[in-house]
Design a protein around this nucleic acid. Sequence first.
RNA 1: CGGGGCGUGGCGCAGCCUGGUUUAGCGCGCUUGCAUGGGGUGCAAGAGGUCGGGAGUUCGAAUCUCCCCGCCCCGACCA
Length: 494
Amino acid sequence: MAKEAITPRAEDPARWYTDVVLGAELADYSPVKGCMVIRPHGYALWELLRDELDRRIRATGHRNAYFPLFIPQSFLAREAEHVEGFAKECAIVTHTRLRAVKDGDGVRVEPDPESRLEEPLVVRPTSETIMYSMFAKWIQSYRDLPLLLNQWANIVRWEMRTRLFLRTTEFLWQEGHTAHATSQEAEEEVRRMLGVYREVAEEVMALPVLVGRKTEAQKFAGALHTYCLETMTLDRKALQAGTSHHLGQNFARAFGVKFQDAAGQEQLVWQTSWGVSTRLVGALVMGHSDDDGLVLPPRLAPVQVAVVPIWKGDAERTRICEAAHAAGRELREAGLRVEVDDRDALRPGFKYHEWELKGVPVRLELGPRDLEKGQVVAVRRDDARKLPIPRPALARGVRELLDDIQGALYRRALAFRQDHTRSIDGWDEFAAFHDDPGGFARSPFCGGRACEEAIQEATRATVRVIEFDRPEEPGRCVRCGGAAEGRVVFARAY
RNA sequence: CGGGGCGUGGCGCAGCCUGGUUUAGCGCGCUUGCAUGGGGUGCAAGAGGUCGGGAGUUCGAAUCUCCCCGCCCCGACCA
């Protein structure tokens, strides 16, 4: 029977996650600590996700641009909170040349002292500073506003502890940066883009998310306030899936991003920034996969359908493979991403496991018996159910199946989150909850920073989100008993 | 940065405590051939290792000692 390729989630969620990512060939460890190689299957997934996001970012009026990887060190220092937030995780370029030095029998290289830079360059941990230095140059008049830019880029944050996709030293992301004439316009922008993220998360990734505001302690360094999406992983932790910041005029002041309004008055712009990253791929794995490997929502699966021909002997092989390729062509013409697995020397069972490991939503089995009956046997990745589809209705049948799986994955994830979300008012129950079942605790919170720290100290849980749609519900803070306006969501987080 | 674990063919490990019958072995994978083919296929033949690095102890080191390096996991920090 089956060889155990993957550590069961119940046994060790951390290893399970790593096993799924490596086994599905999404990524691999790189020679550089904390960095990863995104393999073709993982990159294809990212590209599909990127396209979904990019389309919506453009549709909301933004244009793509590209700013440099390197930022003058002094730029980071211009906005006080921002420095504090990022100083501890920056990679710095100090030299521009290597030189070869004889070392015993061999040669080693070292930075050439002659090439030391006068001002070191920081490898961008995010691009606010370099972008806004340019905004200051481009924006003169209220007629130049709003400025709506987006950039697809890699960034580097020197994290102490990394995990494939969820937190890597270098990662890929999209960062939107906008400038507006009024605070209200900026606020609308911040919420609009959060809505875009929510739509992609829920409709494309089939991941239900909570949306709302971050506390002072959790917001972006340099922002007025931060909005976010939080999703629940299958080990019941919270994972921040996207953020959208109202930057106010903090950076405008620091970089002199000013415009003349219609009345001829000079004013500082109001700015926003928002981003999602390759972490979303991790969220996807953490949100749907099982002990057999990756489970992908059809809308993002690089391979939506794997056709596995089943034959006995050479004569049959030709016939069956022909039929399998014909089915594959038909599905491709219907706009689906299809792989026909006609590899010889591998038995069907092996292929089943392999495609399951890679998360392919639908597998089609086509053997002599099916050919006879004029059908194809479809097998769903999400619940392993098999159902025959009459050959003439193939494309329509598969499409419907994919749509059904997309919906089922969302509902399953939503039910999981609901099952592990609890309203908790008392401290003892609250403290125990995060240890034992774990999940999201909706609890009254006073909003105090010290209180939040004390809670984290005691339970390792933090405020993940103050939901937009929370009911007004005066109560007593779960920790200090002080006045609380309503409940916030607490959880341990990635 | 603290705690734990681990470095032995591509991957996973055994051997180490008690140094020498080890020419360093096993499973998986890989190559070739034949058979097989509706849930991880069988047989046969092969390729592949300076035992993480350095120094030391010893007649002799994968095995003992010291130093260094790297990786994974768990915490503090973070998208």
